[in-house]
Simulated assay, not measured.
Amino acid sequence: MKNKNLITGLGVLSLIAALLVAADHIDAPDSMGTSADIADYYAFEPSLGSDNTVFAVDLQSNVLPDLAYGTFDENVLTEINIDTNGDLVEDLVIQAIPRDGKMYFFGPVAPTTTGTSGQVMVDSPLGSVDISADTAIVETTSSGVSLFAGPRQDAFFFDFFQFNAVIGGMAPEGFKPAGDPNSTADDDTTAVDTFDGANTMSIVVEIPNTMLGETTATNALGLTVYKTWVTTNAKQ
């Protein structure tokens, strides 16, 4: 397999069953404010009993609507790592890297080396899609793979200022945040989604499970699952 040695880097690990959401916003100083900063990672079936799996990577949180879109860094390679046998070592990798307004995808294929290899698997193209701006663009390949890259509304609901008030002991006495089954209408109206109107730069792949193969990994519920995590790798 011919590879292009491009990148070394950093990442975040998350394991999934039916769905996992790993919030990790703006806490890595070296990558904060760039598309190397992993905000959230989701992996799920698009519908119950589907034969596909969706991988959604949210990068660079708090991208405000009045800022320029298409801010994927061309020096950052994003890798979706998939473990099929439960040993927490990637058996397959899907890669995404932007070039000239398009996001190019490679894989899924077994990496030549495990860990953060930083090698673009140019011999295993999966497809490409124009990076979206105001209108979402989805490309579906002849293999039934759907691809997307561009800004999306941040799915992370968080009252950042009330959180700081609670941590600092300054929240109103008896306050119960929105979503608490004992909260009142007054409580709910004081909750504010700090990230409402903000976006992340998202990379989404929906892929047939036949391209990922069978899995022997088992979660705590006894269900067979793919264990998966995402890394971003920045060119040095």
Rank of each mutant, 00 (worst) to 15 (best):
P108H: 03
P108V: 00
V109E: 11
V109G: 04
V109K: 07
A110N: 08
P111N: 04
T112A: 15
T112E: 15
T113L: 14
T113K: 09
T113M: 14
T113R: 09
T114K: 12
T114G: 15
G115L: 05
S117V: 00
G118A: 12
G118P: 07
G118N: 02
Q119Y: 05
Q119V: 06
V120C: 03
V120G: 02
V120Q: 05
V122C: 03
D123F: 06
D123I: 09
S124N: 15
S124F: 12
L126P: 05
L126R: 13
G127V: 00
G127L: 00
G127P: 14
S128H: 03
D130S: 03
D130I: 05
I131Y: 11
I131P: 06
I131Q: 15
A133W: 00
D134F: 06
D134C: 03
T135I: 13
T135F: 10
A136C: 01
A136F: 03
I137Q: 06
I137D: 07
V138G: 01
E139G: 01
E139D: 10
T140R: 06
S142L: 04
S142P: 02
S142W: 01
G144L: 08
G144T: 15
V145M: 05
S146V: 08
L147H: 15
L147Q: 06
L147W: 10
L147A: 11
L147I: 00
L147V: 07
F148C: 12
F148P: 11
P151I: 08
P151D: 00
P151S: 09
R152N: 00
A155I: 08
A155M: 03
A155H: 05
A155C: 06
F156H: 10
F158E: 07
D159T: 08
D159E: 05
F160I: 15
F163W: 12
F163Q: 10
N164R: 02
N164G: 13
N164F: 11
V166Y: 13
V166E: 11
V166Q: 07
I167T: 09
I167R: 06
I167K: 04
G168P: 04
G168V: 03
G169I: 08
G169A: 12
M170W: 08
M170A: 13
A171D: 11
A171V: 08
A171G: 01
P172A: 01
G174H: 03
G174R: 01
F175V: 00
F175P: 10
P177E: 08
A178D: 05
A178C: 04
A178P: 14
